[in-house]
Computed example of a mutant assay.
Amino acid sequence: MDLNTIGRLLVLGALGLLVLGGLFLLLGRFGLDRLPGDLVFRRGGMTVYFPIGLMILLSIVGTILLNLFFRR
């Protein structure tokens, strides 16, 4: 693999993370950061957050979008 290919992969990966980060910011702005099914454990000064409901929602939306784009 040459340096051009590695550079392109890094740029594409960074753009993908940028889009994903923007998506999470928008979801938080619309109040979708705490959905039913999300687990939050608080003990003392520590909080552990498992966004299971959000991950299920993103999985469903992602599956639908990928099926629309890559349908034969």
Rank of each mutant, 00 (worst) to 15 (best):
F70R: 09
R71F: 11
P51H: 06
A14V: 10
T63K: 02
L39E: 09
V48F: 15
N4A: 14
L58Y: 06
I6S: 01
F70E: 07
L57V: 09
F24T: 13
R8L: 11
L18P: 00
G37L: 12
R72G: 08
L39C: 05
G22A: 14
G16F: 10
I6D: 03
G37M: 08
F50V: 15
P51W: 12
G7A: 10
I60F: 13
D33G: 13
F24P: 01
R43I: 10
P51G: 10
V48P: 04
G31Y: 11
I60C: 04
L18V: 13
F41I: 14
Y49C: 04
F30L: 14
R42W: 03
N4M: 05
V11A: 11
V61Y: 03
L35V: 06
F50K: 05
L57Q: 05
G13M: 08
L20N: 03
F50P: 02
L57T: 01
Y49E: 10
L35Q: 07
F50E: 05
P36A: 11
L68N: 01
G22N: 12
G62T: 08
T5Y: 06
F70Y: 12
G44Y: 01
I6M: 05
I60N: 06
I64P: 03
L26D: 05
L54H: 05
R34T: 11
G53K: 09
L12T: 09
V61H: 09
G16D: 12
L15G: 04
L57S: 04
T5A: 14
P51E: 07
V40T: 14
L17N: 01
L9A: 09
G37Y: 04
N4W: 08
R34I: 07
L20Y: 12
M46C: 06
L15C: 13
I6P: 01
V61P: 05
G28W: 07
I60A: 14
P51I: 10
G44A: 03
F70D: 06
G31W: 12
Y49G: 00
L32V: 08
S59F: 13
R29E: 13
L26E: 10
G7H: 07
G45Q: 07
T47L: 10
V48E: 05
L23I: 14
T47M: 07
G22H: 02
L32K: 01
V61E: 00
G31E: 05
S59I: 02
L25A: 15
F24V: 15
F50A: 15
I52V: 15
L54S: 15
V48C: 03
R72N: 04
M1C: 02
I64G: 03
L15E: 10
F70L: 15
L58D: 08
